[in-house]
Amino acid sequence: MSDFGFHLAFWSLAAMTLGGASMIIISRNLIHAVIWLVMSMLGIAGLYLTLSADFIAVVQVLIYVGAISVLMLFAIMLTPRAERDNSQNIKTGGPAALVVLLVMISTLWVAIDTDWGAVREAALTDQARLIGESLIKHYILPFEIGAVLLTAALVGAIALARQDDEDAAVHAASLQAELDGEGSVDPVNVVDPPIAAEAPDSEAAS
């Protein structure tokens, strides 16, 4: 890969990644935010590719784009509609921005300060095999610990996903109150807008 092609790829991918990341913060709609996140993830996957890490790139797409983002979308769809607004985060984001800025500066400082031993020779051709072998041969213990941890997480998730009756009761009570007071609801306002006004999230999750 010549320098020009490399630079072209790097800068466009970097722009894609960072642009997507900023749009996550800016967009008010959580679903939009997830879609920008996906764009950012794809940019990162592309960056991996420019570093000849094709296995990592593909795994990035497989896991983050294909799985994690879908998981996030599911989580959003399962959230009550009122809590799906991204706008409050912007208002209370001052201190958070400060923290993020500090982290970013320190990371940048470390990145610039470190003497990166650039790989000049040809890229590894069989990374998947190497990664697999090192996982199974050299790092078998951490690998197994990770597996056990994930299994535990899976079981825990199922246990947590069981319905919490108290929450439901509170929610039901508030809805009932709303319904009781609904005698005076102006039917003109109720026809149609509930969906139209709330934009595309009709309720439901299968």
Partner: peptide, 15 residues
Amino acid sequence: DLNVGVLFLLAVSGT
């Protein structure tokens, strides 16, 4: 002809 062609196939179809 990717070394990780099978994985690529799954990743892309997942998107």
